[in-house]
Design a protein around this nucleic acid. Sequence first.
DNA 1: AGATCGGGGGAAAACGTTATCATCTGAAGT
DNA 2: ACTTCAGATGATAACGTTTTCCCCCGATCT
Lengths: 343, 343
Amino acid sequence: MLGLMASPKPYRAPVLADVARAADVSVPTVSRVLNGSKYVAPDLAQRVNEAVQALGYRPNGAARSMRSGRRTLVSVLAGATANYGYARTLQGVETAARRAGMSVSITVVESGEDEHVRAAIDLTLAQPTAGVIVLEFDRAGINAAKALPEGLPVVVAGGGSRRTGQVPAALIDERAAGRQATEYLLHLGHRTVHHIAGPTEGKHSGRTDGWRAALTAAGAPAPQIMRADWDASAGYRWGERIAGMSDVTAVFCANDDIALGLMRALSDRGIDVPRDISVIGFDDQPLVALWRPSLTTVDQDFEDLGARAFGLLSQVIGGEPDAASSVKAPQLVVRESTAPPKG
Amino acid sequence: MLGLMASPKPYRAPVLADVARAADVSVPTVSRVLNGSKYVAPDLAQRVNEAVQALGYRPNGAARSMRSGRRTLVSVLAGATANYGYARTLQGVETAARRAGMSVSITVVESGEDEHVRAAIDLTLAQPTAGVIVLEFDRAGINAAKALPEGLPVVVAGGGSRRTGQVPAALIDERAAGRQATEYLLHLGHRTVHHIAGPTEGKHSGRTDGWRAALTAAGAPAPQIMRADWDASAGYRWGERIAGMSDVTAVFCANDDIALGLMRALSDRGIDVPRDISVIGFDDQPLVALWRPSLTTVDQDFEDLGARAFGLLSQVIGGEPDAASSVKAPQLVVRESTAPPKG
DNA sequence: AGATCGGGGGAAAACGTTATCATCTGAAGT
DNA sequence: ACTTCAGATGATAACGTTTTCCCCCGATCT
């Protein structure tokens, strides 16, 4: 009859009442001990701690957060996770959150379409979240930030040079960086600088703005913007076309992947970087320093961005009235892919 | 006196009772409508839905999960997040979870030290989690998997060729891949294959095992293993030494970063890949195809790994008795960095 | 010695939801 | 016309915790 026996213990996780019984104290006392309240006798506290150990008790997070109203989960909404910038920013958020005793959840917004935005938000808010950090690197993130309900603590992390709307933001000043990169190329003696931009993100991108500003300030002609997706293959395809253009001597790419794809295409066609054409990327992924030629690029401190975003969210959650946006300027890293023009 | 006025509405998120009042129905009825129960009159349902819309009501996840016992959060424990393999696996988990209507939380285990392991587990289990996926790519993950309490749904995702302990696992057969890569080099005519391994992970690594098995099967001599960290600089340092070794004609690297660092070091010393030395990597990061020469490597389907891990966890949570581990073999991708030896 | 005070601890309420149970209605079956 | 039944709804309990309230006690003060 063994096979028909009901399982003897369906294993129920121990709860506060079990601990209280084992320690022969009341339920609130156990709670007090666990939450480090003073006003509890040492011997009782010890009995409780022993019972907790013995039973392997873990507080039920749902019950805890429901009753106390305290939330220990922060949610990240992002258009992607595995791309370098996203992943590093997420890492920065996670590290900061962990040090503060909070957990991080991540939800991907598949696209900027209403449907995807709404689905992601619904999923995120189904958890008892203390607040939301939106990675505003793409349209999905931008739309998600707009669609979040009022009254919920929200901060944005992104590449603008100033705050977007009313939401506090941790920012990287892409505009300044784009300008600096372009100015560097002009300073080397290039007549103008071509630009491969990322997919259009609403009105403008800071990188593109900075590029244009530098050209205007220097009185240099602004060539037509070349649009590309974020990945290397898009850079490669533009490289094929640029190889046939005689007037291009310097290219500022919206990210490292595009730059590497471009360089490979040029290399495949016998065009030398940086002798024939200079190339600058954006992000400073670890591998680009190994490239031949190593890539001149803009170092964005994504981890710091994530940490700042979390800090800001903490302030907002804490109700601090002057939760101020922060902006940090990325840094140009000069390597081998840039040089004065041939002439 | 304006400055001294108490804020008029401290904003309390609407709850079920508010909706019920607005729709003039009972609280349970609202719950029924929201959970799609039948047995509710169409006109009532509509009133409820309108009230939900009007008030912007969102169910309180904590209360919901406490009462129903249903959990909609799965937790990922990992030794890192931003590295390519980790990030892609996490992406796979997130996508699968989102499709299943579940959220994902991520906690980094800083090291294999007891202290860090315990801290990470405590943090994770403070959330009302339905189950845990441990990324067993390093010692931190391995130790975390061991230290998780009994009775909690746990699965492992990693690179073993068979299950570790009693925990169901989604695996990538690194051993088979290591063997295949090594056999390919031998097949090209190399007398033996050198190997740069990752940091020692307990007893062994599947990649290293496969390498050794291939050499043994072919009767080739097994050179001393070269140990390295996972990053490119470690590969570079080995490259500096390998440049001075005359007997090295082929190197199998434990990951792509190491391989790229190695290739750069060799290139810096005028050693041609693949003419003088063949190099194989492991992971197939997107950029390695752009390298010059493009890298022969092993494609690991990390996203699929994450998806399988989530599927497995779902089964475990659902109480399916035969939640079977799955193993998938990665694939060798032949590119330009491998060739027959000179002689 | 009686009033006062504050540490220590238990009883009970409360959080917002879902599950159980009971009740009510109207239609179908005799 | 009287039961029967199923659909529809509300009252109430329950989940596991924290918070509030109150009582007890011994120590200190008049």
